[in-house]
Design a protein around this nucleic acid. Structure first.
Lengths: 144, 144
DNA sequence: TGCTTATGGTTACTTTTGTAACTAACAAGG
DNA sequence: CCTTGTTAGTTACAAAAGTAACCATAAGCA
């Protein structure tokens, strides 16, 4: 690749961003419009729905999200009555986060929407291509 | 894909974000640390270096970036002495943005860094895989 | 010309994110 | 117990991004 020929539209970080943004518009509009949720809120909700009650710290570690972002997302989800916070009996610094019925409903709805999103993607690119794409993305995400 | 089996780590928007973020850390740290630039500033600088002088509106259209983001990036680049603004002779609303020597230097340095970034990526994934990846990302970015 | 509408660009305001400092609780060693 | 060091979580402040309203100029047209 010659310097003078370098084209931003073929630059991987740029392409990744464009693709991520385009995909995000599709999906994030769902949890934004329907539940007024932010991305971190969706991710926190997802972890609680998928893996059951856990602490903010556990989500932070599992999902690799900074604790301040988790803290804000948890508060927001609490205000929406999507989860309850129960102080741990063994360590009073820790709060166990538990989904409440509205949280479960939102989780179910969003997981189905996500699955549909994946099916649409498969129809668009083909099953094999999606598989390849995911493999490559995982390789990129794991920083060596 | 069954709902109860749905795994966020295999969800395409999530994977895209993780990959984009990981790649971004690699490259954005260069223009951030070396020049104190933001992503939009780098993109504006790139367009001026690659395609020559043009107006904010032209960059906005070409790069698909909102005009307020362009406006802020242009001001920042001006403060860094990376570009000059010349009011158009034919339309006094328009300013032609022209790179100044420090801007050219930064452009050259960053384009070379970007090229090296791409080479490293090729070594990591293999040339063919990078090609495939880009094709798929472009398909995703073009919203149908 | 005079009126309306559109365009390039900036500014003001709000929302979101990043960073660092902070509180409260625990843990380990003396 | 007391000191020192950690850890879970929150808060405060600063940086950044999104949105909408706002100038100034230009363009279209009666």
């Amino acid at each position: 690749m010659q310097q003078t020929d370098f084209d931003l539209s073929g630059f991987t970080p740029y392409l990744l961003n464009q693709a991520a943004e385009a995909q995000s518009v599709d999906f994030s509009s769902i949890y934004k419009n329907r539940y007024g949720m932010l991305r971190t809120e969706w991710r926190v909700l997802f972890h609680l729905g998928r893996y059951g009650p856990m602490s903010a710290k556990e989500i932070s570690t599992l999902a690799n999200i900074h604790k301040t972002k988790i803290s804000r997302a948890v508060r927001a989800l609490g205000e929406k009555q999507f989860l309850a916070r129960e102080t741990s009996g063994t360590d009073r610094r820790v709060e166990h986060l538990v989904l409440r019925p509205p949280g479960h409903e939102a989780f179910d709805y969003l997981v189905e929407a996500a699955a549909e999103h994946e099916r649409a993607l498969s129809r668009k690119l083909g099953k094999q291509n999606v598989k390849t794409l995911k493999l490559l993305l995982k390789a990129l995400a794991s920083r060596q």
